[in-house]
């Protein structure tokens, strides 16, 4: 028989207060008003969403705010059906990359508004390239989950 060795149960809980900075503050204030903001790179012209203070490709400051569409097309998705400690969204859920109309990068968020418990139904319904639109929460706190999910149009 294999010997059982002792273990110690321990836990780390550390408080943090992370700064949004001016750009992300403005983005999340927009979310509270049901608006999605991006910023435009003066060099490559790409509209970045969520808004960034500088372009991750050209490394120059972005100089223009753009309110972007709340509709877009699904680029890719995955159906998450497992659980880990502290998971902020209960499974099953669909994580998805969404290209909002008029933007040049994909926004990572959720696809919902369908019966997620039924995977066959999910597979029949969810297709890359399909149109989706933002569904807002009634209580908005200036948080990425102020958008509850994107639902098929």
């Amino acid at each position: 028989m294999t010997k059982e060795y002792k273990t110690i149960k321990t836990e780390l809980r550390l408080p943090y207060e992370l700064a949004y900075g001016a750009t992300w503050t403005r983005f999340f204030e927009g979310m509270q008003e049901k608006k999605i903001y991006g910023t435009k790179c003066p060099k490559c012209g790409k509209v970045l969403v969520p808004a960034r203070s500088f372009c991750p490709k050209c490394f120059v400051d972005t100089d223009k705010w753009v309110e972007v569409s709340q509709e877009g097309k699904l680029t890719a998705w995955s159906y998450t059906n497992y659980r880990y400690f502290g998971q902020p969204v209960d499974p099953p859920f669909i994580g998805a990359l969404i290209r909002l109309d008029g933007t040049d990068v994909d926004l990572l968020h959720l696809v919902g508004g369908i019966d997620l418990k039924n995977f066959d139904e999910v597979k029949r319904t969810i297709k890359n390239g399909m149109k989706v639109k933002a569904v807002w929460s009634d209580e908005r706190k200036g948080h990425i989950l102020d958008i509850r999910y994107f639902e098929p149009v």
Partner: peptide
Amino acid sequence: PFYQRFFIAGAPGVFSMQSQMWTD
């Protein structure tokens, strides 16, 4: 924890999405 932590679902979530994109 501002934009993406809620949706990536550990390692499998994000790498599965990549595979789904490639398949399509």
